[in-house]
Simulated scan of single mutants.
Amino acid sequence: MRSLFNRNSLTLSDRTDQAAGLRRLFSGGAHQRFVAVASNPHVACAGVLLERLTAAFAAQACHALVIDASESAPVPSVAVLEDPALGLEPLGERLSYVAARGLSQGLREVAGGAAQWLQRLAAAAPQCDVLLVHAPATEISRFFGGRALQPLLLAAEGDDSLTHALASLRLLAARHRCTQFDLLLGLPMTSPQAVRAVRHLGGWARSRLNLGLRHGVALDPARDAQEPALPPTLAQLAAALLEAHDEQEPGNWHPGGGDAARGAALPARN
């Protein structure tokens, strides 16, 4: 059984800097980045894709926290609703995990709801540089409370996964002022299906929603995990998701992407 995450990893200067502690408590940590990952029940390799993405963050010396509210995630205990820190689990030197399936629904009657809970979780884990919220689009909307987003979509081979990804993007674009999105595919990079998926999703989003596809990255879930070096396209995606932007949301909220580079559609990488 995995032990609960040890949150006593602050440096001595941090522990003795009362002002820094107060800033973390009320802002959730100015260095932290939030990334909305739209879950897709038709992507059997979603766990592998997220593992590879968090490895790319670790390669850039970042500690990732996965808040897993996907359809297949474990259901958290009731206590986690009151204290998010109770759900923290370490999975590696630079990786932590929180099971959160159905949690946003349980927080509907709580003041601040899921968005406030997410900020409290961030404050409880100041050592985490990037927080990935892996959840259905409707759940993402509850966690991010109408803030601007640049979501990351997951997809794989098969029309069902593409249809689901498009539906998620449509909902998020309508609710969160999206201007761009990223795509992570569970397919071999040289696969014709990967090229087709990137072109289909990118073209549909551009023509129907006026959204640009910034990064389209394909990973072979059966092969890439055995390679010692990260694919360059995955490293580029991770770096882009970590970028700080001049335009920030009020209240020190920093969802991945924000409104930066509005209208700029960068070419897909496949």
Rank of each mutant, 00 (worst) to 15 (best):
M1I: 12
M1N: 11
R2F: 12
R2P: 14
L10Y: 09
L10V: 11
S13G: 13
Q18Y: 14
Q18A: 11
A19T: 14
A19R: 15
G21E: 06
G21S: 08
R23V: 13
L25M: 09
G29M: 05
A30F: 13
H31G: 11
Q32I: 04
V35G: 01
A38F: 06
N40C: 01
H42Q: 09
H42T: 01
V43R: 00
C45A: 15
C45G: 09
L50C: 03
L53R: 02
Q60C: 07
L65F: 07
S70N: 05
V75D: 09
V75S: 13
P76A: 01
P76N: 06
S77A: 14
S77D: 14
S77E: 15
V78R: 13
A79S: 12
V80S: 03
A85R: 08
G87F: 08
E89R: 12
P90C: 11
L95M: 06
V98I: 09
A100V: 08
R101D: 02
Q105V: 10
G106A: 04
E109R: 12
E109S: 15
E109T: 15
G113L: 06
A115E: 12
W117C: 04
L118M: 09
Q119A: 10
R120C: 07
Q127C: 14
L132M: 08
H134S: 12
H134Q: 11
P136K: 04
A137I: 06
I140M: 03
F143Q: 00
F143A: 05
F144D: 02
G145A: 15
G146H: 08
G146S: 11
G146I: 05
L149V: 05
P151Q: 06
L152V: 08
G158I: 02
D160R: 11
L162K: 07
L162M: 09
T163C: 15
L166Y: 00
L166N: 04
A167L: 04
L169I: 07
L171R: 07
A174E: 14
H176I: 07
R177K: 14
C178K: 04
Q180P: 11
F181V: 05
D182T: 10
D182S: 12
G186N: 00
G186H: 07
P188K: 01
T190V: 10
S191G: 00
S191V: 06
Q193G: 10
V195M: 11
A197I: 02
G202C: 05
G202S: 02
G203T: 02
A205S: 06
R206W: 08
S207E: 13
N210S: 13
G212W: 06
L213C: 03
L213N: 08
L213S: 00
R214S: 10
R214D: 11
A218T: 01
L219A: 04
D220E: 05
P231Y: 01
L234C: 08
L241P: 05
L242E: 03
Q248A: 12
E249F: 10
P250Q: 09
P250V: 09
N252S: 15
G256F: 00
G257R: 08
D259A: 14
A260Q: 14
A260L: 10
R262F: 14
R262I: 15
A264R: 13
L266W: 15
